[in-house]
């Protein structure tokens, strides 16, 4: 994603909300209301795994990205086009499991409970898959439409970690995608899988 495009996106008046860090003062509520009825895609996962970065890649909006857990404390909404149709993408605060410990984790869980997302992107840090996979299993067990996003693949590769995507898909029975969202790598594949998923889930 090039910076110019992002800037243009931010400057567009109807995107005002996605770029203001305070999602509740007026404009955002309006946008949220106008998005009612639109199909939703939730981005969830542990803190600091690149959820907001992935969200930015998918929407072209800018949600805050920083290198510490707990950057995002409120849900953040943007839009993307899949198969020519507009979808709302929701970036959520990081959560470690379906059992919330802090306030912002509760906010994130409520998205899953209340907003009926048609896709749940579970973003994980690929080098810490062992620690994060139990949450994927929880989400699948919850009957949510999960796509597993193995992000930060660059660091995992540097550590010599190899992940067999096919085997993962076979075991989990959900789509799995490897990405390096910091460099925008794998995002087109992710989009492809999302489109495929939407096609089979909704039309098929």
């Amino acid at each position: 994603m090039n910076i110019l495009e992002k800037l243009i996106n931010i400057l567009k008046p109807d995107k005002a909300c996605s770029s203001c860090p305070q999602a509740k003062f007026g404009a955002c509520q309006k946008l949220a209301a106008s998005l009612e009825g639109i199909k939703k895609i939730a981005v969830v996962g542990s803190p600091n795994v690149g959820k907001s970065m992935t969200f930015n890649c998918l929407t072209g909006a800018y949600a805050n990205v920083s290198n510490y857990p707990g950057t995002t404390v409120e849900v953040f909404r943007g839009k993307t086009i899949l198969n020519g149709e507009e979808f709302e993408i929701i970036d959520t605060p990081g959560m470690y499991s379906l059992m919330p410990i802090s306030e912002e984790e509760r906010v994130a869980r409520n998205i899953l409970l209340n907003e009926k997302p048609i896709i749940v992107l579970h973003v994980v840090d690929a080098k810490n898959l062992e620690r994060m996979l139990p949450f994927t299993l929880q989400l699948i067990e919850a009957g949510l439409p999960v796509i597993l996003v193995l992000n930060i693949m660059d660091e995992a590769e540097r550590l010599g970690i190899k992940i067999n995507i096919e085997a993962m898909q076979h075991e989990l029975k959900v789509p799995v995608v490897a990405t390096v969202s910091a460099r925008g790598e794998g995002i087109d594949i992710l989009k492809g899988k999302m489109e495929e998923y939407v096609r089979t889930k909704i039309c098929g």
Binding site: L129, E130, L133, L159, G160, I161, K162, I163, N164, A167, M168, E171, L172
Partner: peptide
Amino acid sequence: IIERAMEYGP
């Protein structure tokens, strides 16, 4: 699952 799908190299 990890045992089946993940490998540690150098």
